[in-house]
Simulated scan of single mutants.
Amino acid sequence: MSKLYIVATPIGNLADFSPRAAETLKSVDQIGCEDTRTSTVLLQRYEIDKPLFSFHQHNEHHKVKHLMNLLDGGSDIALISDAGMPGISDPGFLAVRAAHQNGHTVCAIPGPDAATTALAASGLPSDRYVYEGFLPPKKGRETRIKAIAESDTTSVIYVSPHKLVRFLKRLSSFTEPDRWICIARELTKKFEEVQRGHISDLLDDWQNRPSVKGEFVVIVSGKTYSE
């Protein structure tokens, strides 16, 4: 049967792309991209010239059938997202499930990941953690934030820049002011920033900044953690 490759791509620094990932993309018949314009920059950097098709959150259900037709026809296909591992807060789950259901081989090519990169840099307990990804925009958001505040386990959350201060304010309303958190911004990029401290201090810093820009990962310690 054909193979579906799930290939991790750099979360910022293009030099983080692995030789194995590059060779895999050179070997497949077609590449599904979250955004073909974004992916072209990476592919040109590594001299990868393959037919591309779009595969993103707005067309994933429709494109799964197209993807299965390619695999059923004997083509090996790779899926990549704009950054990180497809299927982890990015499109890919439906395609992987369908590939398994239809008897095709699935192979994940590991690489950069914002969640574990931030966690490793946080200096907070990483033996057990809960990956929250992006919280729901409305329904269920409050419940999730309360659960994070009450958890004894480290939590990893992706937060949009325009929601960062609002998220920290809401979380702080359910936690003690000395709860340890880490805010990682623009990981692997030129303006990378990793801040670690009490939630009250970091909230004060960010709500007094003139602007909040970049891609954020927030690490929240469990409520029983202390130093």
Rank of each mutant, 00 (worst) to 15 (best):
A99I: 03
T153R: 02
V212D: 10
S151L: 02
P91W: 04
L171Q: 11
A22I: 14
G133D: 06
T9K: 10
S89P: 07
E23V: 00
T38A: 12
L14H: 11
I6L: 06
Y158G: 04
F93C: 12
D76K: 04
D201F: 08
K163G: 04
D113N: 14
A147Y: 08
A114N: 07
T143H: 14
L202M: 06
Q30T: 15
L135C: 09
N13M: 02
V64G: 01
K189M: 13
S151V: 00
K139P: 06
N208G: 15
N69L: 11
H100W: 09
S75I: 01
G92D: 09
G12K: 05
G73R: 05
W180K: 15
T36I: 00
I183R: 03
L124T: 05
P86V: 04
L171E: 11
T224W: 04
L70K: 09
V165T: 09
C182Q: 07
P210C: 11
G12R: 04
K65D: 13
P10E: 11
D49S: 13
D205P: 09
H62R: 15
D49T: 14
F174H: 13
Y46Q: 09
L171P: 08
A21W: 03
K213P: 07
N59G: 13
C107T: 13
K3Q: 10
A108P: 13
R179H: 03
L14W: 12
G214M: 11
S18A: 07
T153P: 00
L79M: 10
I109C: 02
K190C: 09
K26I: 08
N13P: 03
R20H: 05
G73E: 12
G84E: 00
Y225K: 12
I109K: 04
D16A: 10
K190G: 04
G123K: 00
E193T: 06
L164W: 05
L168N: 01
I157T: 12
T188V: 08
L203N: 12
I109T: 03
R45C: 06
S75H: 10
G133K: 02
G111A: 08
P86L: 10
S155R: 00
D204W: 13
A15C: 13
F174N: 12
P137T: 15
P177G: 06
L168W: 07
V64H: 00
H66V: 04
E193L: 11
T175K: 10
S155L: 01
I77P: 01
V194F: 10
V28P: 01
L202N: 07
D127M: 11
S54T: 13
W180M: 14
F167D: 05
P125N: 08
M68I: 15
V7G: 03
V218A: 01
A147D: 15
G133N: 02
K26C: 06
V212W: 12
Q195L: 15
G87L: 06
E192P: 10
L135M: 08
S151R: 02
G133H: 04
R97H: 12
K163L: 12
M85I: 00
Q207R: 14
E227K: 13
D204Y: 15
G32A: 14
